[in-house]
Design a protein around this nucleic acid. Structure first.
Length: 261
DNA sequence: ATGGTAGCTGTGCTA
């Protein structure tokens, strides 16, 4: 089973790119998208016509928004991260995907950017991460096989940035941000890409500005965190970096996870 | 210190 996460930076701007990508020979079984920047009503649902994907969106006007697409049976889709009834930002969706030998709860997330830090936006980011940790604890407690994936807006360590020193005071790289991310790992979750690739220099985001792609001035902020049972059936995790060099790209590229499931 | 780019239904905000 192939699962992919991708921050598309706007479904309207990326319609044709995503349309064609879903019809590629190696299209994923499950696609977890962030920053659809669309309401549910305005989302062009014909993007999956004839593909076999079922599509669920959790959108809002102008910003944020996540989507979950699956060619496998998809059950019990829920939206919103528990823990704050007043949170109106569309950043979280869950669904259970049925595989050949078992199922996996796929938790798709668009974690707040948090800049400028310090400030209310950074407070919101840290509070959101605490809610995510609580959700992970609950899933572990009920022994549900699951994975957290999406745009975490977290640079885990120095290997994950071309210029690590440029991010030490940024909300994506502050010590408090990294500590909150590490708390997820110490629960017993596996960071899929880092487990398979120890070397630095692998990125999932390059800013549109200042020729970041041409200089490979990137950061790795799109991740898969796997519960123990799912980590046991991982066979691959890779970054589709070439997508950043194509016509009219998103500033993020897809990250792939392959499971024997 | 600044500004560089993209995507939103915008005249600034978010990233």
């Amino acid at each position: 089973m192939k699962i992919v996460t991708w921050n598309i930076n706007g479904i309207k701007a990326r319609y044709q790119t995503v349309h064609d990508w879903l019809r590629a020979e190696d299209a994923p079984d499950v696609a977890v998208l962030q920053e659809i920047k669309s309401t549910d009503d305005a989302f062009p649902r014909d993007i999956v016509d004839g593909t076999g994907y079922t599509l669920h969106t959790h959108g809002q006007k102008g910003f944020n928004g996540v989507a979950l697409l699956s060619k496998r049976p998809l059950e019990d889709v829920t939206i919103g991260l528990p823990g704050d009834a007043d949170d109106e930002q569309a950043r979280y969706i869950e669904g259970t995907v049925i595989g050949d030998t078992g199922s996996v709860r796929v938790c798709g997330l668009y974690l707040p950017n948090g800049n400028p830090a310090p400030g209310p936006k950074y407070d919101y980011k840290l509070a959101w991460m605490a809610r995510l940790e609580a959700r992970a604890r609950a899933l572990l407690a009920e022994e549900t096989p699951f994975l957290l994936t999406g745009d975490f807006n977290v640079i885990p360590d120095a290997r994950d940035a071309k210029r690590p020193e440029a991010w030490t005071k940024d909300a994506l790289g502050l010590p408090q941000t990294r500590a909150a991310f590490r708390r997820l790992l110490t629960l017993g979750l596996t960071e899929a890409f880092r487990t398979r690739t120890a070397a630095p220099g692998h990125y999932s985001f390059w800013d549109y500005q200042a020729g970041a792609w041409d200089r490979n001035d990137g950061i790795r902020i799109d991740h898969f965190l796997l519960s123990p049972a799912i980590a046991d059936c991982m066979t691959d995790c890779s970054i589709q970096a070439d997508m950043r060099g194509r016509e009219k790209p998103s500033d993020h590229v897809p990250v792939w996870l392959t499971l024997d499931l």
